[in-house]
Amino acid sequence: MNTLSSFAVPAVIGFFLIFGMVRRVGVYDCFVEGAKDGLQSLVGIIPALIGLMVAISMFRASCALELLAHLLSPLLSTLHLPPDVLPLALLRPISGSASTAIVTDIFSTAGPDSPAGTIASVMMGSTETTFYTVAVYFGALGIKNTRHTIPCALLADLTGILLSIFVSHWCLL
C-alpha cells in the first residue's frame, strides 16, 4: 500500500505536465501564476495560524489538554484515540486553520509517523471544514434555511473521524 501511495505524487506531476504540453499551454508561465496564488493564500492565513498555534501550545503546556483527556479517558480508550488528537476531532468541522495548527503541533511534538501523527493525518485529509463550506455556499445565495444540510454533513464528519482512527490502526500502525 505504501508503494502504491508513493507512486501517486510523481504520476500526478508527470500527468499534469504532459497534459499541459500536449494542449499547448505555456506550462512554465502557468506554473508561476499558480504558485503566486499559493503564496498569497498562505500569507493570508499567517495571522490566523499565529493566533491559533499560540492558543494550542498554551492549552497543552498548561496541562489543560491532559485534564480534558483525563475527563474523557473512558471514551478515548474505547475509540483507541491518542489524547493529542482529541482537539483535532473536536475542532475539525469548525476551523480549518485551527486544524492545521493542531496537526502541526502533533507533528512537531510526537512526529508525523507516531500513532497520534498518523491518525491526525488521515483525519485531516479526509474531512473538511463543514461550517465554513456551508457558510460560503449558502451565504453566497442569501439562503438562511439550510434544512438537513448541517446534520447530514456532521454525520459524514463523525463517520470520517471515527473511521480515520479505525483505518489508521488497520493499515498504518
Binding site: 499551454v25 506550462v27 502557468c30
Partner: peptide, 13 residues
C-alpha cells in the same frame, strides 16, 4: 506553491 502552480497548469489545459 509547487502544487498550486502545477494545479494551474491542469486548470489552464
Amino acid at each position: 506553491c509547487l502544487w498550486t502552480g502545477l494545479a494551474r497548469i491542469g486548470e489552464r489545459a
